[in-house]
Amino acid sequence: MRTVEAASLEVSGVELAFGSNKVLRGVDLAVPAGQTACVIGPSGSGKSTLLRAINRLLEPDAGDVKLGGESVLRGDADVLRRRIGMVFQHFNLFPHKSVLDNITLPLRKIKKLDAEAAQAAARAQLELVGLAHKAGARPGNLSGGQQQRVAIARALAMEPEVMLFDEATSALDPELVKGVLSLMADLAEAGMTMVVVTHEMGFAREVADQVAFMDHGVVVESGVPEQIFDAAESARLRQFLSQVL
């Protein structure tokens, strides 16, 4: 994994509601450049919504999101998203395009690379995730783990400063989880700033610099993995951990 130009990420007091349903009720999360924060918590606690508020797929109602120290809420959201990579639970590769074209499409259309440069960059990225030999295949002919690695390659090819992972391994068969997690660990090791929403507690304990536990739209407790997993303070976190560990 090559070195990356990562930026710090700071979420403060972010609120977001779907109609009368308040999903985020003032979330705070600070991730220094090059660090990995894992977000854990029960379903419906607002973890995925938080990621979408960070890259403004959903617009926060209140609060602020700072990337590299600057607020991202005022500028053009499309430009902001070029700086933030996102990986989804269901991969969301474009099924009508080949693996290679999935990666070259945003490079050509958004980064305005010519076809040759885009292909070279895409192939290099596929090489890094170990799937160079699948360049010509359709996503539908790949295993889930391979698809997710392509999705990660697609996001990385845009050279983001922050990566968001939304339950990236939840839809995978158990035997395929490891390959994706180790790729994510490599990326963390290479110095990417990452926010990882995950149910993989082993990954959170080993890779995260910081673990944040969310429940009912707020970060209830956060800290280094040892503190969260071995010395949880709040009753809600202890109860959650007793159910998942």
Binding site: V79, K109, I110
Partner: peptide, 30 residues
């Protein structure tokens, strides 16, 4: 076409219009 397709396109930095034109509509038409 699954909602995630437009979401993925937008997450990459495509505008709504480009995302529809390059990703969603070609799949829908097919």
């Amino acid at each position: 076409v699954e909602k995630g397709q437009l979401e993925a396109a937008r997450a990459l930095g495509f505008s709504y219009t480009s995302g529809m034109r390059l990703v969603v509509i070609p799949q829908g038409v097919r």
